[in-house]
Design a protein around this nucleic acid. Sequence first.
DNA 1: ATAACGTACAACCATATGGTTGTAGATACC
DNA 2: GGTATCTACAACCATATGGTTGTACGTTAT
Lengths: 113, 113
Amino acid sequence: MVVDTERTDRVFRALADATRRDILLRVMRGESSVSTLASYYPMSFAAVQKHVVVLERARLVTKRKQGREQLVLGESSAIEHAIEQLERYEIEWRERLVRFDEVLQNSLKGRKQ
Amino acid sequence: MVVDTERTDRVFRALADATRRDILLRVMRGESSVSTLASYYPMSFAAVQKHVVVLERARLVTKRKQGREQLVLGESSAIEHAIEQLERYEIEWRERLVRFDEVLQNSLKGRKQ
DNA sequence: ATAACGTACAACCATATGGTTGTAGATACC
DNA sequence: GGTATCTACAACCATATGGTTGTACGTTAT
């Protein structure tokens, strides 16, 4: 079950930065050129361009060339992948609660006897 | 809306490592001492202890002392926090699809006239 | 043709990260 | 008491990360 860790690593790593999360929100609302994105943040164009590369490698965004611009667009599948990963933990949690409940039930039965 | 970025950073950062994700799965199944956890991985006790600290700072796990052992337990609220964050992106995505659909509908109406 | 714009990428820097070994303090065992 | 176990933490190292500036190249505008 240690499949896909590379991808999962990259997705969570990409999401672990506030600037990248903000870029992602913007490009899920609609595609935007890299320089337009750069104009929103108090850092150099190169820094923003690097953030886009990180998002791209995590497959959270895609780019398409239009003239001299590179338009960045959010990709929903990677988000879904991340949510699926997290839901595994929720499932574990619920199963744990169920087991706890069983133990509780058994101990109550024990008392009644 | 730039609230809570520190916490979100820490949660995603903590999840961006396969060893930490595995530790998290184990301690959501049931609490475990740090040295027991360490026995599962091909690295030093100190390395695993550091991973636990990272999970702890992200509030993905809690510790409680029992004798000389420190028992680590998964915390569901941080996972839920992370899922909530990700669902924001899903919502953006759906809204984007709705807008796209509206544009499409309008262009179809336009043609009919 | 030349200037301006948008992008990519290299080189560099400071700091963070993930690992190591070693040391020291509590607690449990004999 | 003495020894083994569990944990925490410091010091260290190599590499990754997030930022910078500078350069090069293709595209658009004058």
